[in-house]
Computed example of a mutant assay.
Amino acid sequence: MIELKAGAARLGLLPELGGAVAFWESGAICVFDAVSDPNLLAQKGHKVAAYPLVPFSNRVADGHFRFDGAEYRMKPNFGGEPHVIHGNAWEHPWALELLSDDSATLQLEWHPPHDRPMEEWPFAYRAQIRFDLREDSLDVWMAIHNIDQRPQPVGLGFHPYFPRRAGVKLGFSADTVWTNDERHLPALRVPATGAWSFERMRAVADEAIDNCYAGWDGAAFLRWPDDGLALTLSASPALRHLVLFTPPDKPFIALEPVSNMNDALNHAGVTDRGTAILAPGERLEGHIHFALTAC
């Protein structure tokens, strides 16, 4: 594990475990919640508090998509589902590129195996993620570079888990939200109003939400009144989708700034689906800022 420090703040990193974050602590308070999910097969039961989503966020239905006249079918990587989930960068060791007391840059270079070119992501890419820790904030910079000789469709995102401590409240603004079908894939796009709305900050009770919001304005707010702590999340324009996951039987929620809608590779007709088509040598990048304040 690599540990960054800035005053009373500490950030643990696990490059060998998919570039994951082990913890983010502010004094005695855990800002990110370490979670073990046995369905994320490559994590092998280890607890992680956040991890990068490269080269796409969420699901690709049955691991199958078509692009540029070719058909691709990837091997499922999530227990109990036929889909491929969250790309493949979280399944592989990252290399440490740069390190200081309060900053670290990790890198992953992916090349499809010649004998299994479509078992995982079928294009070559280089991904980078940089963590800059301050006593009252964390910056996460991400980029994916197309190092293949062909264009490729990509996305990226970041998957932090936050503690679902008593009284936690959430607020953000988005235009629409995708409902899910029985296979956890996008079904209908509806206005983010009524029960779907977090325009007015409200408590995260026992709701079971696992949906992608579109037309997100790039800001979200979390409050833990019992801890006297507030967090403001802001994301760069490339990350204009927000996945909210609130399993009622778990002690955490996930709030994921991402570039693409769920199953974006199979929704070419959605103009703002968020998939970037990178020519060889091009890159997509995004930035997330987490700021802590007292409340």
Rank of each mutant, 00 (worst) to 15 (best):
M1S: 12
E3I: 12
E3S: 14
E3C: 09
G7W: 08
A9L: 09
L14Q: 04
L17S: 00
V21H: 01
E25H: 13
I29A: 03
I29W: 11
D37E: 14
K44T: 10
K44D: 09
V48E: 01
A50H: 04
L53Y: 06
N58I: 11
R59S: 10
V60M: 10
H64N: 07
D68G: 11
A70I: 04
M74L: 14
M74G: 05
N77K: 04
V84T: 13
V84H: 00
N88V: 15
N88D: 13
A89P: 02
H92N: 13
H92W: 07
W94D: 03
A95F: 07
T105H: 07
T105A: 03
L106P: 12
E109K: 14
W110A: 01
P113A: 08
D115F: 14
Y125F: 15
A127V: 06
H145W: 08
I147M: 02
Q149F: 06
P153G: 03
L156H: 03
G157F: 09
P160I: 06
R164Q: 09
R165P: 03
S173C: 12
A174E: 06
A174G: 09
V177Q: 00
W178Q: 02
L185E: 09
L188W: 11
P191F: 09
W196N: 02
F198K: 02
F198R: 02
A203Y: 04
D206Y: 10
A208G: 07
I209C: 02
C212R: 04
Y213G: 00
A220K: 00
F221W: 11
L222Q: 01
W224T: 00
D227L: 15
A230R: 13
L231C: 13
A235R: 01
P237W: 04
L239V: 07
R240E: 08
L242Q: 05
F245N: 06
T246F: 03
T246W: 04
P251G: 06
E256P: 03
V258R: 02
N262P: 04
N262H: 07
L265G: 00
H267G: 06
H267K: 10
A268S: 15
G269L: 07
D272T: 11
T275W: 05
A279E: 15
P280K: 11
G281L: 12
R283L: 11
E285A: 06
E285F: 10
H287G: 03
H287D: 08
H287T: 11
T293N: 11
A294G: 14
C295D: 15
